[in-house]
Design a binder for these strands. Structure first.
Lengths: 189, 189
DNA sequence: AAGTTTTATTAATCTATATTAAGAATGGTG
DNA sequence: CACCATTCTTAATATAGATTAATAAAACTT
């Protein structure tokens, strides 16, 4: 299972055999069943998770009980509550599994120590975080400047695989509209 | 002027005197007058800018000519078009000055070489990028789950200094509503 | 300081999207 | 396979926020 992660790291910052074995030591495997939580709002995020197989999501629940999805994490993506993980503050996000999912967990303390032992990993995570920020910025701009229908179309072209994995309800939650309205938009074709 | 940057870096990852002098060598000072562009949509972002004094903003212009502000950068903030800077792709963002502003510019090529010469700076930028991502995620959640009035109130408490620096029009553009509607909301108090 | 441009306010009207509700289709679970 | 959950669809109604327009107030520029 760890080889998926090693392969991913090597695609960005190639590691020596020795460095690889350090990584192998520091991560922990875990399998989540559908709907199982990896992290709950109110707790301090201890882990960042690399998805080997399946799909996780992070989401907030508003005062009316509605869920708002911040991120989907299919295979080969990292997911965490970045705010909580970085600030060691309890936060508002939940992370759970949309379907049976295998992950590798890296604790915050391990991550910090791993950066000193393998500086290349600091680069790896810097690059991933830069990419995530660029993607997040694009999403913000889309949200500010495009109507729901166009946001939906963009979502479909950006994440063609996800469309077939997740429910429409989840897509609606991600693009910021109600499932009823998404259903209406889809009916217009 | 560079000492502002050095001080900022030292607050996150303390540098040796020698490392400091490398930083000093690699950045370039620039002063922008009000409304002067640092970066225009369509170009590939060459620089990341550290604001010493004044305030910049990044924004996209939609098909109807409306501006949508992605980021404000007051003193001690970095700003760039992360997408364009990282992918070396032309992007949709403009960056200009809201008032006379002094910046330090770091080119992408310098940044890459600086990481090899001063690994601490890779950490510095990793941490800044993590913080920016955490803030961006919070903004996304707010946008998905809160009505305009609450987003405005949160903006006021999160950026009390900015409120007195920038126009209401800019605030409206950042929180994703029209200036007319913001004016109406403010009238309700 | 006058003149010009930009920003802010107010109010009437309009629209994209939400809400509510009810039935149909799907899908996970025993 | 059958049952219960959840998801999807459709339609009527409601509303947050946009648009338009006109005037007032600031804020640059010369």
């Amino acid at each position: 299972m760890v080889d998926h992660l090693i392969k991913h790291i090597n695609s960005i910052t190639p590691l020596s055999a020795e460095e690889e074995s350090i990584v192998v030591e520091l991560v922990r495997e875990k399998t989540l069943v559908r709907k199982q939580f990896l992290h709950r709002a109110g707790e301090i995020a201890q882990y960042s998770a690399f998805v080997v197989e399946g799909c996780l999501r992070s989401y907030a629940v508003d005062r009316n009980g509605f869920e708002h999805i911040l991120q989907f994490a299919p295979a080969n993506w990292w997911i965490s509550d970045m705010y909580s993980f970085v600030k060691s503050q309890p936060s508002e996000l939940n992370i759970d599994a949309l379907l049976e999912t295998k992950v590798l967990l890296l604790s915050r303390s391990c991550q910090v120590s791993i950066f000193d032992r393998i500086p290349k990993l600091e680069r790896y995570f810097r690059i991933l975080t830069e990419n995530a920020l660029a993607a997040s910025n694009l999403r913000t701009i889309n949200y500010l400047s495009l109507p729901a229908k166009v946001r939906y179309e963009k979502f479909c072209t950006m994440y063609p695989t996800l469309i077939n994995t997740i429910s429409q309800k989840s897509v609606a939650s991600y693009i910021g509209i109600t499932p009823e309205f998404l259903s209406k938009l889809r009916g217009e074709y």
